[in-house]
C-alpha cells in the first residue's frame, strides 16, 4: 500500500511546525519499528529540521538536487542515527522556494510513497509558493497554532486555503505552547476557545516546555527522552503519534478545572491505516 502524506503547516511563523514534525516523526518511528517514516524539510533556504533531529552533519544531497535530477531520492535521504526506520529529506540551504514546483513535488512524493509508510512534510511559514509546494501531495494536514490571536487568525486563513483545494485534505489541530497557569487565570485563550473558533478536529495539545529548547540543543527530539512521563511536551507528542495510529489516548489534564478539555475531545478514527 502506498504511503500516506501528512502536512504540518500554520501560516504564521515560529509556532512550532518544525518542532512538531520532528517530535511526531521520531515518536511514530519509535513506537513501531515496522513503520517507515520519511520527513521532508520544505523550508528551502531556511532549513532547520536537520538540526532539530541532530542530522545536520550527514547531509550530502538535498531536495532540490533530487528534483533537478542531480541525484536519486535514495541518495539524498539521511538515515536517522537512532531509528533505522526514520529518514530525512533535507531542504537546500542556498536556494529559494521557487527551486521546486508543485508538479515536481507530486512526482517526488509518488516515488517516496513506494518506499515509506508515512511522509511528514514540514512546510515553511507563509502562504506563498513554499506553502503550495508542501500542499501539492498532502493527504492530511496538521495545523499547528499557539493559543495567541495572530497564530489562530493565520491558522484560520490556512485552513480556508486547504478547504479550497480541489482534493479533500483533512485538517487536524495541534495547539502548541499552551500555558495552563495563564489559561487558568484567564490571561490566555484555552483549548476550548481555540477549538471553538477554528472548528476543526483537535489532535492534541502541547504545553509550553523549556525542555524543548534543551533537546533541540542536543539534536534529540524531546519525544525520545527516556524520562518522558507526566504532562510534558515529550509525552504530549508521543500521545499524538499514538492517536495518529488509532490508539485512543485522552487529552492531558494540565490543571484542576480542565477536565472540560477531556470532554471536548472528539474521539479520533485512525488517521493512518496500515495493512
Amino acid at each position: 500500500m502506498p504511503g500516506k502524506t501528512i502536512l504540518f503547516t500554520s501560516g504564521k511563523g515560529g509556532v512550532g511546525k518544525t518542532t512538531s514534525t520532528a517530535n511526531i516523526g521520531v515518536a511514530l518511528a519509535s513506537q513501531d519499528p515496522n513503520i517507515n517514516v520519511c520527513m521532508i524539510d520544505m523550508d528551502i533556504g531556511l532549513r532547520n529540521l536537520d538540526i532539530q533531529l541532530g542530522l545536520e552533519n550527514r547531509i550530502v544531497y538535498n531536495i532540490v538536487d533530487v528534483v533537478e535530477g542531480a541525484c536519486k531520492a535514495r541518495q539524498a535521504l539521511v538515515k536517522d542515527k537512532r531509528l533505522p526506520n526514520l529518514a530525512l529529506l533535507p531542504a537546500a540551504q542556498t536556494r529559494d522556494k521557487s527551486a521546486v514546483s508543485p508538479e515536481q513535488m507530486i512526482t517526488l512524493i509518488a516515488e517516496l510513497r513506494e518506499m515509506f509508510d508515512l511522509i511528514l512534510i514540514d512546510s515553511p511559514a507563509g502562504i506563498e509558493q513554499g506553502f503550495y509546494n508542501s500542499v501539492a501531495a498532502a493527504d492530511e494536514a496538521i495545523i499547528v497554532s499557539t493559543p495567541e490571536m495572530s497564530a489562530v487568525r493565520d491558522a484560520d486563513r490556512v485552513i480556508g486555503l486547504l478547504e479550497a483545494q480541489n482534493r479533500k485534505i483533512n485538517c487536524w489541530l495541534v495547539i502548541n505552547r499552551l500555558r495552563p497557569a495563564m489559561v487558568q487565570s484567564n490571561d490566555m485563550m484555552g483549548v476550548d476557545d481555540v477549538v471553538e473558533i477554528l472548528n476543526i478536529k483537535l489532535l492534541g495539545v502541547i504545553p509550553e516546555d523549556e525542555r524543548i529548547i534543551v533537546s533541540t540543543n542536543k539534536g534529540e527530539p524531546l519525544a525520545l527522552a527516556k524520562s518522558n512521563k507526566g504532562n510534558g511536551a515529550g509525552q504530549a507528542y508521543q500521545n499524538i503519534a499514538l492517536r495518529l495510529t488509532g490508539v485512543e489516548v485522552p487529552l492531558m489534564v494540565f490543571g484542576e478545572n480542565e477536565n472540560i478539555f477531556v470532554k471536548q475531545f472528539n474521539k479520533l478514527k485512525a488517521l493512518i491505516k496500515f495493512s
Binding site: M149, V152, R153, D156, N186, D187, M188, M189, G190, D193
Partner: peptide, 14 residues
C-alpha cells in the same frame, strides 16, 4: 478578562 477579549476580537476578525 483578556482571554474573553482575545476570543471576542478574534471571532470578529476571523
Amino acid at each position: 478578562t483578556s482571554r474573553d477579549e482575545a476570543k471576542k476580537r478574534l471571532q470578529l476578525t476571523i
